[in-house]
Amino acid sequence: MAVQSSNAAVRMGAPQRETTVRPRRQNEKPHLVPRHHRTKRTRNAAASAIRVTRIALICITAFVMLSLLIYQRAQLAMLDVESVRVQEQLTKSKSETVRLESIFNSKVSVENVEEYAKNKLGMVKRSSYQVRFFLNDNSDQVVLADKAGKP
């Protein structure tokens, strides 16, 4: 039967222990029930273990985050170097494109084309009378300019 003394202090948060008083038998020597010292130690140990675990977890997390941060910064630095390298490559390629375009355009100048056409291909420049002009009134038919009464 649990007897609770009205004067017993109750610790907040601490589990209340029920004291059971077993009715004493005849000729039974009263013996003391040793208090549980190990309980408090165990409790403290448990709390301590939790604290340590917590701290360890925090440390590990911090370590991992720091590592990730360092790794990312290293990646950023490498990407930046790569970006600069690619940018330089792009600038070089653009520059080469401009140079080659300039050479190409100079080769296809009017003088070069005419000279090649005349001397290498044996072509002759067209005369103005070789071009026929047509009147186009946006229909399917065309009328030769010289048949349209033009002088």
Partner: peptide
């Protein structure tokens, strides 16, 4: 539209 002058990085 024929380019007569253009710049390049050297």
């Amino acid at each position: 539209g024929m380019p007569l002058a253009e710049s390049s990085n050297v």
